[in-house]
């Protein structure tokens, strides 16, 4: 039997292994999982199984082909809706529906139209801000899962800043807060909304703080107060800087994270 701790580390290894085979890991995590594979024959067995599963899936599973008839029906929906003012019930073309089904479907379409008009779409797709917070927290979690939550390890901002410069041609503010009890640990690159962005990593005792810096084109007011949110037990605080939008995420208590943000903004001279 596996003890709970070995089981959870096995679970972590398996998640990393899957992400590795899906080509989703950053450089540091790739090294980490390759080292685990070298050390752990059982994990290599899992690796071979997963590779075989992938081969089998790709040879047996195909994308369904739509029939021409179906494509025509869908195109007809678009044509039909385009010709009608918003809010009208669109009758879906169908094969051999009985009249009763038609009535049910019309009722469903009215409901769908009403709900869509009433903002159900916001429910289907989370707001951009909520999405971004979820993405930032998920990246932070993923970084915590890997061997080190940074790609460049340095407490020296004169090392971290040029590293971003060479990697991304971007230079976010890197401030030294060691004297305030938040030593710099390093930096990494995350992909947010399809774009690589710099992330600074600080430490507070055993806690990790990620500072995500998303460059923005237009000048923004830097005097607005920071906004706080929580997600899955992580605190996220966001604010606008001169050239970057910042988001910090950590499992630190919110008052300590607030203190970090205040010190950071003071040191960066942006407020």
């Amino acid at each position: 039997m596996n003890s709970p701790s070995s089981r959870s580390s096995r679970e972590e290894s398996l998640m990393l292994l899957n992400a590795y085979l899906d080509d989703e890991l950053d450089a540091a995590s790739v090294l980490d999982i390759e080292r685990r594979l070298a050390d752990d024959p059982a994990l290599r067995v899992e690796h071979d199984r997963l590779m075989q599963l992938r081969k089998t899936l790709s040879s047996h599973l195909k994308v369904e082909r739509t029939s021409e008839d179906f494509r025509n029906r869908v195109a007809a929906i678009a044509q039909d809706m385009n010709d009608k003012p918003p809010g009208t019930v669109v009758q879906l073309p169908s094969r051999e529906r009985r009249w009763k089904d038609w009535q049910q479907m019309a009722a469903a379409a009215v409901l769908a139209a009403a709900v869509t008009a009433g903002g159900m779409y916001g429910f289907l797709r989370p707001s951009p801000a909520a999405n971004e917070i979820a993405a930032i927290v998920a990246d932070h979690q993923r970084a915590l899962l890997s061997a080190a939550p940074f790609d460049v390890a340095s407490s020296d901002r004169h090392t971290v800043k040029p590293w971003f410069d060479s990697k991304l041609a971007l230079s976010p503010q890197v401030v030294d807060l060691a004297s305030d009890g938040f030593p710099l640990a390093g930096g990494r690159v995350e992909v947010l909304d399809g774009k690589p962005v710099p992330v600074l990593v600080y430490r507070r005792r055993a806690h990790v703080i990620s500072v995500v810096a998303v460059p923005h084109a237009e000048q923004k007011s830097t005097t607005e107060p920071a906004l706080a949110a929580t997600k899955d037990g992580y605190s996220v605080i966001r604010w606008h800087g001169r050239d970057f939008d910042y988001a910090v995420v950590s499992d630190l208590a919110e008052n300590e994270l607030n203190e970090f943000v205040t010190r950071w903004r003071e040191a960066a001279g942006e407020n």
Partner: peptide
Amino acid sequence: PIGTVMSRLARARNLLI
């Protein structure tokens, strides 16, 4: 969240195997 994607995918494949 991406973390949930990762764990569900790992479990889905494991179950399938």
